[in-house]
């Protein structure tokens, strides 16, 4: 039996610009996934805890403020601590090219900058979240 892919969409940090997070949450839901949107200003601890409680396959982080190099490593580290290494982490927002290799090294390969078609994000998540389903 396959179940729907479960995605936690989170807005970490202090930024309140949630247009992208909300549009993506809705697009993933329309694509047949179960989507949990955490709301604003979540710490990495809260996000990982939500992923654990919701039995998430994917965590989508929306970060436009430049704090991604602090938040992403912390989320990955906490996932490891909780034994959730198989949860796929993807990031959307304003991510400078020079940070991409360092995010890749953390295992984050789904990095979506402004202008990414929603279908590309849906396809990426569908292709990478299968392991847990």
């Amino acid at each position: 039996m396959s179940r729907k892919i479960r995605v936690v969409i989170a807005k970490p940090g202090l930024d309140g610009h949630d247009r992208g997070a909300k549009v993506i949450a809705r697009a993933l839901r329309d694509a047949g996934m179960e989507v949990i949107y955490t709301g604003l200003r979540q710490t990495p601890e809260q996000i990982v805890s939500a992923a654990l409680q919701e039995d998430a396959d994917v965590i989508g982080l929306s970060i436009l403020s430049g704090a991604h190099m602090h938040i992403c490593p912390r989320v990955v580290e906490l996932l490891k601590e909780k034994g959730l290494d198989d949860v796929q982490v993807v990031v959307g927002g304003i991510i400078p090219d020079q940070d991409v290799p360092r995010l890749n090294a953390l295992g984050i390969t789904g990095i979506f900058i402004p202008g990414t078609p929603m279908q590309a994000i849906v396809d990426f998540i569908t292709g990478h979240a299968r392991a847990r389903v």
């Binding site: 940090g13 202090l14 930024d15 200003r41 710490t43 403020s65 430049g66 704090a67 190099m69 602090h70």
Partner: peptide
């Protein structure tokens, strides 16, 4: 403040 992590002087 803990929530300021990574945000100081960025935006």
């Amino acid at each position: 403040h803990p929530l300021s992590l990574g945000e100081v002087g960025k935006c």
